[in-house]
Structures are given as C-alpha cells and as structure tokens.
Amino acid sequence: METVQNQVEVKQAWVREDLVIVPMQAESATDAIAQLGARLQAGGFVKDSWTQAAIEREKTFATGLPTPEIGVAIPHADVEHVLQQAIAVGVLEEAVEFGEMGSPDSTVPVRIVCALAVARSELLVKLLQQLVEMFQSPEILKQIAEARSPANIVRIFDHHIQIEEEVEG
C-alpha cells in the first residue's frame, strides 16, 4: 500500500459490502449502532471508542429523521473517533425507535441506519447535503429498504453520493 497525496480530485467510495448489514435485526437503536460500529471498527475505519461515543451522542443529540414513509437515522461520533471515512448501512427487517432529531420527546421508527464515520467536519457537511437529498426521495428510500444484498446497497449509495474532494497535499 502506498499513500498518494496530490492535488487531484478524489472520488470517495463511501459504502463497502463489508459495511452493510442486510437484512439486519436489532433490538434497539443502541444495538443497531453497536452492530454497525463493529463493522466500521473491523474495517479499520474507526477507533475502538467510536461505538460508545456514537451511542452516547445519540442520547444527547438524537439522529432519527422522520423521512417520508421509511425512517432513517444517521448516528455518528465526533471526528476524533474516526480514522477513515465510510458509511456503514443497516437495513432493519423490523423498525427500531430512534430519538427524533430536534425533538427530544419524540421517537421515529427507523428502518435504515447509516452510521457515518467522517474525520473532518467540512466533509461531513458535504456528505450530509447529499444524504439529505437522497433521504427526501421516497423512491430511493424504498430501493434501499427493499435491497436484498449488500451489493445492491453499495450500488445505490455509489450512485447518489459523489463527493469530489480536493485534497490539499
């Protein structure tokens, strides 16, 4: 492996098959975050501390989004727990309740959990802008929820998330 540092624009692959759990069974939001955190950790994308940090953060700043028809959550931990950017995706057979972002007394039944590992906040902003566009489409959410293999999920995310990052060497 060699590290390449140059000025070209890098197209990021955000989701890999080993970061996808489909179908996923989880007992709770915490369980779902832990399962996806384990994948991120196994892939070398996050530090050991990520899962606990994401679970704790979720309690204070819930990430469930009441998206059209199919609920989505975007649990994440602060940047210092991240080694390399990635998204782990879990598609739940049966929804689990996540706290609703912005409304501490409400929960959202979530079927699509996207655990975000992003090491820089500017990049998280770009990623979030594209994710939000995706999540506002009931059609795309349906495609994700009905996907039967990790390869399908990877294809959907690759198609919709294209961040050209200018790497400053």
């Binding site: 009441p66 059209p68 972002m101």
Partner: peptide, 10 residues
Amino acid sequence: FNGVPFLSGV
C-alpha cells in the same frame, strides 16, 4: 423553529 424538516423533507 425546528429545522429538521430541511433534512427530512417532511
């Protein structure tokens, strides 16, 4: 205002 609708679309 709760800004979450800008994220969820709903």
